[in-house]
Computed example of a mutant assay.
Amino acid sequence: MKVVAFKREKQGTGASRRLRNAGQTPAIIYGGTEAPQLIALDGNALFHALKKEAFHSSILDLEIDGATQQVLLRDFQMHAFKQIVLHADFQRVDANQKIHKKVALHFVNAEISPAVKLHAATISHVLNELDVSCLPGQLPEFIEVDLAKIDAGQSIHVSQLTLPAGVTIVAHGQDQTVATASVPAGQVSAEAAADEEKK
């Protein structure tokens, strides 16, 4: 994804306020061997880009004065009630150095799982994102969680996920639960209902 930015010389609250009043968002790029650089972006374009999941988990091509560098979005601040991005932080990326990033989880095939089809179970998403480590070129937009085989009373853990090539989970000491399937209280499964009818 490409982002166009402009250099900015002035910093401070007043300068940032003037930028925002002009429809721009102050930002900073840091990391790598170069010094941190103050930039400004089109506020409206940035606001809409932030709605896209890929913008948060992709390597971005940031263009300043015709020169492009690769960066990751690291942080941003939104206005409390206006549709305005107050500030954004970008980190330079080295193609040969591993990066640490949170990646969204996409849950698929819940509707065909035994838990849902046979037992009318509810599948709860315990995690919505995972901490991963990989080279910039291997960063996935998301990680898929296949729920096709989950049954009532079962859970899926991080160790059961299929990861893209080169991607490792940054484990925090335990095999975290990603999703669980449970039958709500008072709910009768299709199998149990069929058994009752036979009696």
Rank of each mutant, 00 (worst) to 15 (best):
L72R: 08
D75G: 03
A40H: 13
D89R: 10
Q97G: 05
A40N: 12
S57R: 00
V93C: 09
A49M: 06
T68Y: 15
Q91F: 15
K51P: 14
T68F: 05
N44R: 15
F81Y: 14
L105P: 00
A45D: 15
V103P: 14
F90K: 00
K52P: 01
Q91T: 13
A45Q: 14
K102G: 04
L105R: 12
Q69M: 15
Q97S: 08
V93M: 12
Q69H: 03
M78E: 13
D89E: 08
H56R: 10
L72E: 10
A95R: 03
A110L: 02
A88M: 01
A49F: 07
A45L: 15
L72Q: 05
H79Q: 09
H48M: 12
I59E: 04
D89H: 01
A49G: 03
H48T: 13
D94T: 06
G43W: 01
K52V: 12
H79W: 06
H87G: 05
K98E: 12
A110E: 14
A40Q: 11
A88S: 08
H106N: 14
E63Y: 01
D61K: 10
E63N: 11
L105T: 05
L60N: 13
R92C: 13
D65Y: 01
V108C: 08
L46Q: 04
A54H: 11
D89K: 04
G43F: 02
Q69F: 12
F90G: 02
S58G: 07
Q83L: 12
Q91D: 13
L41F: 11
L86G: 02
Q69E: 15
H48E: 13
N109E: 00
N44D: 04
R74N: 10
L73C: 07
A67V: 12
G66P: 14
D94G: 08
L50E: 10
L46T: 03
V85G: 04
V103L: 15
K51H: 09
A54W: 08
I99A: 15
A104C: 01
A95V: 14
A104Q: 08
Q91M: 05
H87C: 03
L46D: 02
D42P: 03
K52F: 02
K82C: 06
K102R: 06
T68A: 10
F107A: 03
V71F: 00
L73D: 05
D42H: 12
L72G: 09
D61M: 07
D42Q: 06
D94V: 07
K52G: 05
N109M: 02
K82M: 04
V103A: 13
D75V: 00
L86Y: 00
K82N: 09
R92K: 06
D42C: 02
D75F: 00
